[in-house]
Design a protein around this nucleic acid. Structure first.
Length: 316
RNA sequence: GGACGGGUGGGUGAGUGGCUAAAACCAGCAGACUGUAAAUCUGCCGCUCCUUGCGGGCUACGGAGGUUCGAAUCCUCCCCCGUCCA
């Protein structure tokens, strides 16, 4: 009853074929896909976030997609809570969770847990930002220096986003963020993760990204953005920060031609893929595969790796 | 054919005699990142050598000459691009 259940986490940069591999593994192992992606949680933003359309899911359940409205703020902490619910549920039904991971922070939040720190406070953040604009550059960092010198030391002065979060923890927890972190992280009790990484050759990945962006546009991405705007979703909503959406919104306002928007989106996507690789490279205990997840040979070797660890097909 | 304007490192583009291997931005590469993470931030970014140092050498601002102690910056000629006049 209480022995740890296994889960498989597929990590890799965007367009490396995680979804295809996830569906394939889920099909073979009697599993269900649990998406670990900070953008696919948002409803209505479908094409640009590369959600797998229902028609291509091959009957495999996909969890943690379309769970929040565009106007909502979603966080790593919230992801962890929601994911744990899903995992417990799958465990009860003896289904193997197959995580397709684009957002490294979310995987870490799930597997290692987050410190017992206070959540976001929009009010506090607004106050901090206001004071910062009055007192000028460096104010927030100096404030953090007083509250938590160690944190100020490791966070760059210009990294306002992280400086604010650290101050937020200090103020709300009434002790330094460093101290809060020192208490450790809870991990993910009851589960054991098998991590599989996709790392196709960089040049091939970049080519595939370029082609995929073109395919997305050909597949109606611009219309999707038009509908989102028409629907009244504020251009300031969070998902409108995701790659491609700002560019296409500008295009629809007549400020950017499609001929210029497409290369810009391709470039931003390549840069994103690079950042993902930087993150995943230092992820521990990942078994790496040097190809794309939709390649049948890669699929076969991942499958045999996973089954060799004792994760085998459950009788249907 | 003539008159102007311009040719700078992968790109855009500053620089009008030494402080310039050459601002800034972009691209690229590497990295950091415990509640915005498709975010945010950092470093490197001509070649090369080593005793890795605010170190040495070489190459570089369209081309070739020249002036000067010293030139991306001044002069001459040539080539190319743009605009205008014929």
């Amino acid at each position: 009853m209480n022995f740890p259940a296994r889960l498989v986490a597929i990590v890799g940069p965007t367009a490396s074929g995680k979804s295809a591999l996830g569906i394939r593994l889920a099909g073979r192992l009697g599993g269900e896909v649990v998406v670990c992606d900070s953008t696919q949680v948002y409803r209505y933003f479908d094409i640009g976030t590369a959600k797998v359309p229902p028609g291509e899911q091959r009957g495999i359940a996909h969890h943690l997609v379309d769970i929040v409205e565009p106007g909502e703020v979603f966080t790593a902490g919230e992801y962890r809570r929601r994911a744990i619910e899903v995992l417990e549920h799958l465990k009860q039904r003896r289904r193997v969770p197959i995580l397709t991971v684009g957002t490294g922070l979310y995987l870490r939040a799930l597997l290692e847990g987050l410190a017992d720190a206070p959540g976001r406070s929009e009010e506090l953040r607004d106050r901090l930002r206001k004071r910062a604009s009055e007192r000028g550059e460096g104010y927030l960092h100096r404030l953090l220096g007083r509250l938590d010198p160690a944190a100020a030391g490791r966070i760059g002065e210009r990294d306002t986003q992280k400086v604010i979060r650290a101050i937020e923890i200090c103020v709300l927890a009434r002790k330094s963020a460093t101290e809060v972190y020192r208490a450790g992280r809870p991990g993910l009790p009851g589960f054991e993760a098998v991590k599989v990484g996709l790392q196709p050759p960089r040049d091939e990945l970049y080519r595939r990204i370029d082609r995929r962006v073109e395919a997305m546009v050909a597949g109606g991405w611009v219309d999707e953005v038009r509908r989102l705007l028409k629907r009244g979703i504020a251009a300031s909503a969070k998902p409108f920060e995701f790659i491609g959406y700002p560019e296409l919104a500008r295009h629809l306002r007549g400020e950017l031609s499609l001929e210029k928007a497409i290369p810009a989106i391709q470039q931003a996507t390549r840069q994103y893929a690079k950042r993902q690789l930087t993150w995943f490279r230092k992820e521990r205990d990942v078994e790496w595969f040097a190809g794309f997840g939709d390649d049948v040979e890669v699929q076969a070797s991942v499958e045999s790796y996973v089954t060799s660890l004792g994760i085998t097909a459950v009788k249907q």
